[in-house]
Structures are given as C-alpha cells and as structure tokens.
Computed example of a mutant assay.
Amino acid sequence: MDGRGDSEIQDVVDSAEDARRARWTATGTGALLALAGLAASVLRLTGSAPALVPGAYAFGAFVCALASVLGSRGRTRRALWLLIVGAMVMALGDQFD
C-alpha cells in the first residue's frame, strides 16, 4: 500500500486531463486566431487600407501564433495573455481603417 486512496488517484487523473485540455485549447485558439489574422492582413493588403492596418493584423497574428506555441508547451497562462494582446492589436489596427 502506498497510502493513496482512490479519490487521490482520481484527482491526479482529473488534473492531468484538465492540463491536457488547457494545452489543446490554447494551441487551437492561437492557431485559429493566427490564421484569421493572416487572412485579414492579406485582405487588407489588397485593398486601399493604410499600411498600418495589414501590419497590425500580421503582428497580431504573429503574437497569436507565439501563444499557440507556448500553449502547446504547457505555458497556458502566458498563452492566454498573448492571445488577448494579439486580438487587441488586431482590433486596434482595424480602428485605423
């Protein structure tokens, strides 16, 4: 006997599943926002928008891609903050249009 009860083992398993789910969520959300930012950057680049607008979308997409990489490595809190910053940069860039 190692002194662990069934509930303690279940808590460890639940914690591991929660961490895995958080990593997948951060990775997927970061990749989705990065692709959306790149698509918006290309669309704005072909239009008559100022150069700052597609640049902001591209930079926001880069930040979201970085968040996706960090999320896949288990740095989910930092990934969350980078996702927020990336989305804010893209939204701010859209205001200049």
Rank of each mutant, 00 (worst) to 15 (best):
I9W: 06
Q10D: 11
Q10V: 01
D11S: 09
D11F: 13
V12T: 13
V13L: 13
V13K: 05
V13E: 11
D14F: 14
D14P: 07
S15L: 13
S15P: 06
A16M: 09
A16E: 15
A16P: 03
E17N: 11
A19T: 13
A19F: 15
R20L: 15
R21D: 15
R21W: 14
R21L: 09
A22V: 05
A22Q: 15
R23I: 02
R23C: 07
R23A: 07
R23G: 03
W24A: 14
T25N: 06
T25Y: 03
T25A: 12
A26C: 05
A26D: 06
T29V: 14
A31R: 09
A31G: 06
A31F: 01
A31L: 06
L33W: 03
L33H: 04
L33A: 12
L35N: 08
A36W: 10
A36R: 02
A36G: 04
G37T: 11
L38H: 03
A39D: 11
A39I: 12
A40M: 13
A40I: 04
A40S: 09
S41L: 11
S41G: 14
V42P: 14
L43Y: 04
L43F: 11
R44T: 15
R44C: 06
T46W: 02
G47V: 13
S48Q: 10
S48G: 04
S48R: 10
S48T: 10
L52N: 12
L52H: 10
P54F: 15
G55N: 12
A56T: 11
A56H: 08
Y57P: 02
A58G: 05
F59G: 08
F59P: 09
G60P: 08
G60W: 05
G60F: 01
A61Y: 04
F62P: 02
F62G: 14
V63K: 00
V63R: 00
C64N: 02
C64H: 00
A65L: 05
A65N: 03
A65V: 14
L66S: 11
L66Y: 04
A67C: 00
A67G: 01
S68E: 01
S68P: 05
V69Q: 00
V69G: 01
L70M: 04
G71R: 01
G71V: 00
S72V: 08
S72A: 07
S72M: 02
R73E: 08
G74R: 09
G74D: 09
R75G: 01
T76N: 07
